[in-house]
């Protein structure tokens, strides 16, 4: 059993583009749930919208990269708007139901055979990455050290992905310290009170829903940039992974979603490689490699339960702030 390889893999996961995508999506939910109190259980849907709205224009219409990005952003704004119009006037629970259902609708629509020509059906889409690698500013070569050794293209996607994460964090930080953020947090506490103070809470909730949705869709773009689009990735599991990361880090915090995503992604890889290592070294004989892939989710589930019981505010959350939540 090669412990060195196991830890190298796990450490590499810290800065992988997938982790960056998770972090960005978690920041989106942090805006929704942590600050505005909106229960979005369909972040995977926003990610799927982002991924497909980015890839389809490139493959079907030969669109330039910037147009593809714009399309991903606009599509998620539209999607958030469609979800928000009927549900934001209702209680928070309704948004939860609608988002979880619409994320599934998105997934089924893109994988339907009728749309294979556009979305690639169940096999998904690939071969759209050349435009992104073409604008790589890094010359050919090998960069970094130890577990973080990258080729120029691997470095480019990481730099790009994490820059987006940092920009999103700064944006959220600036917004949440402003009076706009104060109104949004007030809505999380009590809608009627904020309404009685003359604020149009419907507009604020819509803005928060759109902001978090756009972050989710950018996460979808980062998620697919280094590889292909696979419709099966956008199931409810993805949404709940992101929720776990958010709660792990602390919901209404700036660094919470980022650190939560890093820890979660690393733990996922670590538990998987350790289990597989133990199996191949014949230390664990009663489970197979495929079963190990499932068992790590059980471990993650148990960790999540312990977290919620012993540290409900997450790593960065303020215990005082949470304990008042009556």
């Amino acid at each position: 059993m090669d412990w060195g390889q196991i830890f190298t893999n796990a450490a590499g996961e810290l800065l992988s583009p997938v982790t960056a995508a998770y972090a960005l999506a978690a920041i989106g939910i942090s805006v929704h749930f942590g600050y505005a109190g909106l229960l979005n259980f369909g972040q995977a849907g926003f990610m799927a919208i982002g991924a497909y709205a980015f890839v389809v224009p490139i493959l079907s219409f030969d669109a330039p990269l910037w147009l593809a990005f714009l399309s991903a952003i606009l599509a998620s704004v539209l999607f958030a708007f469609l979800l928000g119009v009927p549900t934001l006037r209702l209680r928070a629970d309704y948004l939860a139901i609608v988002t979880i259902a619409s994320a599934e609708i998105v997934r089924y629509v893109v994988s339907t055979t009728g749309l294979t020509a556009v979305t690639g059906g169940a096999t998904g889409l690939s071969g759209f990455n050349s435009g992104f690698t073409a604008i790589n500013p890094f010359p050919d070569g090998v960069y970094g050290f130890g577990p973080w050794t990258y080729t120029e293209n691997q470095l480019w996607i990481r730099v790009f992905g994490w820059s987006l994460v940092i920009l999103a964090s700064i944006l959220v930080f600036l917004l949440m310290r402003s009076p706009w953020g104060r109104v949004v947090k007030g809505i999380r506490e009590d809608e009627d009170a904020v309404r009685s103070l003359g604020k149009n809470i419907y507009a604020y909730k819509m803005q928060a829903l759109i902001l978090g949705g756009v972050l989710g869709s950018l996460a979808g773009v980062i998620y697919v940039l280094p590889r292909a689009v696979q419709p099966t990735n956008y199931g409810t599991t993805l949404t709940f992974f992101i929720w776990t990361m958010l709660l792990l880090g602390g919901a209404a915090t700036v660094f919470g979603p980022i650190i939560g995503a890093m820890i979660f992604a690393t733990l996922l890889t670590l538990s998987d490689s350790i289990l597989r290592g133990l199996i191949s070294a014949d230390i664990i004989t009663f489970i197979s490699g495929t079963q190990a892939g499932q068992i790590r989710f059980m471990i993650i589930g148990a960790v999540l339960m312990l977290l919620v019981i012993f540290r409900p505010q997450g790593i960065f959350g303020n215990k005082k702030e949470l304990s008042f939540n009556v």
């Binding site: 009076p179 947090k185 103070l197 939540n325």
Partner: peptide
């Protein structure tokens, strides 16, 4: 309906009107 997880001062500031920073875009420029 006090807004529990906001400070007392923040509660008060929410009551104010004509704060341009309550617009999402001007909020970004302090």
């Amino acid at each position: 309906k006090s807004l529990g997880r906001l400070s007392v001062l923040q509660n008060m500031l929410l009551g104010a009107t004509k704060q341009p920073g309550e617009n999402m875009f001007t909020a970004l420029v302090k």
